[in-house]
Design a protein around this nucleic acid. Structure first.
Lengths: 335, 335
DNA sequence: TTCAAAATTGTAATCGGTTACATCACAGGT
DNA sequence: ACCTGTGATGTAACCGATTACAATTTTGAA
């Protein structure tokens, strides 16, 4: 394998000149550049970026911590991350954590061994020992964010979005509204539920805790958790699921039990994944700017990484949602 | 930032001993090891893997070239890759190519600059200049594979799987079978179509090219391409789509046009993505072992990377499919 | 032509590990 | 007491780039 010295010898110049030819070509005269390029081509020389990065103490890689890359919403966020990182000259390291903290920590620690320059985290547990004296590496927390802002965050106005959806259901005339939340430990669940409660309060609707079922954001969990809501004495005429997958699972089960959607029961989701518009009926949902989360996160992270002084304001960015009304929600029957 | 020399000084040993403490602890006496570990802890020392990898001329990273990470099938394959790579001590670099060859080439060339040790490619165009004298880097081609085996491959028996599906439709009594293929340039399309033709031939069914519509594997394309098939004089009573997303798009449109599935028209898909079982009706499809593709690919790639001599047999592995019969296929009406 | 400033190029140290080889200590056999 | 073999440790070169600084050449104004 040829290196910078081989090339310099063949081109009859110094290693510094070869180096400059590849990193700051404008500082090399036309003539020498040509010579060096010819020599490099002859030898099939490619700069060893491992060496360059080692020297620079930078890997130009971004570690992405994601609970589950097969989640259709997350995978779109990652698309956005990838596109933006690529454009900025960073590579993307994938850290699929399955939600397990020890894997988050393992992956996150790659920043300390210089294998990544920063982290984009799509989940809500700080992957370092807060007490430890280790310096805090560049980290941007998106989509699902910690309550206490220990790092910059980009999130949706989850409370507002949930409120908008409930408002829509109330507008349609629903009074018995069931909610299918995510894991109760999740800040997402917490924020969206707060949004729901706000609207219920405003309209003087009492919130029955029995009309809240818990899922884990998977279709399967939606399928299973719906039974609890359907067996209530006051059966909900509308159900707001905190993501589309659970909504789709729920719809499947609702129909299996002989009810119609939205005839008997309206169902709404959250995220606006691709299939939301191809379901039958098409799903009313909240659209999130998935790719934008990714690109914004990269922008912010790179800014932090490249910042001379590590005096980071813990910015909190909020991205806009959009209420998408489709066929899965309708007025209740007796209205 | 502390380095190996700082630690050696504090521990009162040589740098070699410190190095050995972290890479081959068994070659260091208990007593010294303790000393070194204490010193390292004091200083918050973490080995700089950038330096280690530079020295070893290895990045311990695998580049994954995927046309679209948001595709639910691909994202499951990547889950498998990630899990297996992590277990073997490799990190995963994401190369989302959007199917664009120049990006494939860009990403693939990172192997030449030592940023990755090998490539797993989920698409079918060799990302290097075959004519070039450059040495061919470790590469495993999976899911969608080149015709000429220029690298080891792992694929499904696409022909057999498609044949099994058509056999199923013929068994149900269908005689007018429409096919929605992927891009005609794709080897997947080619192989699956060959499987279909085989069964048609066996049963003496003539294949009308007009009963073949082309999509691009997206739901939207399924939605759009279906019209061509429905407007045929001899309207198909069954349609086999070459992936689930197109099938789901097709079903949506079929119903919009007032036909029932599977009453008027049976629809089958391919891949068995999550939503296939939550559709209404649930989708008859071919199940692929998505995660297994990933883990096998990593196994094979690491074997090649770590192989002393680069004498690689161009292995071609075939993974098993499974025909999953659900509600979207049924006998044609007048049978 | 002359000389200072600017542009270009070269020399050599450096980044933080690994490892070949040398050295040393010590156990155990004679 | 002496020698040998083994295991632990140390010394220093090395990986392939970057870059501070020095040296050299070119440019252009006087």
């Amino acid at each position: 394998m040829s290196n910078i010295r081989t090339v310099s010898k063949l081109a009859g110049v110094s290693v510094a000149t070869v180096s400059r030819t590849f990193s700051t070509p404008e500082s090399v005269s036309e003539k020498t550049r040509k010579k060096v390029e010819a020599a490099a081509k002859d030898l099939g020389y490619r700069p060893n970026l491992l060496a360059r990065n080692f020297r620079a103490k930078r890997s130009y890689a971004i570690m992405v911590l994601v609970p589950n890359i097969a989640n259709p919403f997350f995978s779109r966020v990652i698309s956005g991350i990838e596109a933006s990182a690529q454009a900025k000259g960073y590579s993307v390291l994938l850290g699929n954590t399955g939600g397990r903290r020890e894997r988050e920590i393992d992956y996150a620690s790659m920043v300390h061994s210089f294998q990544a320059d920063g982290i984009i985290q799509l989940s809500a547990s700080y992957p370092f020992d807060i007490a430890a004296s280790e310096i805090r590496p560049p980290l941007v927390n998106i989509c699902e964010c910690y309550d206490q802002p220990v790092s910059p965050q980009i999130q949706l106005d989850n409370k507002g979005a949930a409120a908008a959806m409930v408002e829509h259901l109330v507008d349609l005339g629903h009074k018995q509204i069931g909610i299918m939340i995510g894991p109760s430990s999740s800040p997402l669940t917490h924020d969206r539920l707060a949004g729901c409660r706000q609207v219920f309060d405003r309209h003087g609707i009492t919130v029955d805790d029995r009309a809240i079922a818990e899922g884990d954001f998977s279709s399967q969990s939606g399928f299973e958790a719906i039974d609890k809501l359907l067996s209530l004495r006051k059966r909900p005429t509308a159900i707001f699921c905190f993501n589309d997958e659970m909504a789709i699972g729920a719809i499947r089960r609702i129909r299996e039990l002989g009810f119609s959607v939205p005839g008997d029961i309206s169902v709404a989701g959250f995220d606006d994944i691709d299939f939301a518009s191809y379901c039958a009926p098409a799903l009313t949902t909240i659209k999130q700017p998935a790719e934008l989360f990714g690109t914004r996160a990269v922008d912010l992270l790179c800014e932090i990484i490249e910042m001379p002084a590590p005096a980071i304001a813990h910015e909190r960015l909020t991205l806009p949602y959009e209420l998408i009304i489709r066929g899965s929600t309708a007025p209740p029957r007796n209205t």
